[in-house]
């Protein structure tokens, strides 16, 4: 039995995951970050990206959008705006969101609007990428 730590992933609309995992890989601001049991206390923010965690030697994947993680040696908490399994992603919706965002990017926008559209586009692309990668 491999060493584990307690992971909680909580999204604004539901408790996504609670349980012991052996290994967690997150996308932090400047790249991938692997976390094993006994990690030093760490806080970092998570941009929109991919997340995977290992239970009993098996990887589980999820799409995550904007949040942060607090890591302690024996536990970790992820709080995110949304978190979905690859098979839960609505490809049609993500596709539409991407098109809408791309269309808006072509228009003249204020800087704030531009950042917002960029974030929306990011989320849509991330969903599409993850669902294509892990769910056929």
């Amino acid at each position: 039995m491999a060493k584990t730590f307690y992971l909680e992933i909580i999204a604004t609309d539901r408790v996504f995951f609670k349980g012991d995992v052996e290994h967690l890989v997150i996308t932090a601001i400047d790249g991938l970050l692997g976390i094993l049991p006994g990690h030093e206390p760490l806080v970092t923010s998570l941009p929109t990206g991919e997340l995977k965690y290992m239970i009993d030697g098996e990887w589980h994947y999820a799409a995550i959008s904007e949040g942060f993680i607090q890591i302690m040696p024996d536990r970790a908490v992820i709080l995110a705006d949304s978190c979905e399994l690859p098979e839960e992603i609505d490809i049609k919706r993500a596709e539409e969101a991407r098109e809408r965002a791309e269309e808006q990017m072509r228009q003249k926008q204020s800087i704030r609007e531009y950042y917002e559209t960029q974030a929306a586009l990011n989320r849509a692309m991330n969903r599409l990428k993850i669902s294509q990668k892990h769910f056929k």
């Binding site: 932090a28 601001i29 400047d30 206390p41 760490l42 806080v43 970092t44 923010s45 607090q70």
Partner: peptide
């Protein structure tokens, strides 16, 4: 209290975390 590490830096993380926190609390 012991201090935790912040990646890449406390300022960067907080810059990101606090708006997120405010949004979560208001929601």
């Amino acid at each position: 209290l012991p201090k935790a590490a912040f990646l890449p830096s406390p300022e960067k993380v907080m810059e990101y975390l606090i708006p997120n926190y405010a949004k979560g609390i208001i929601y």
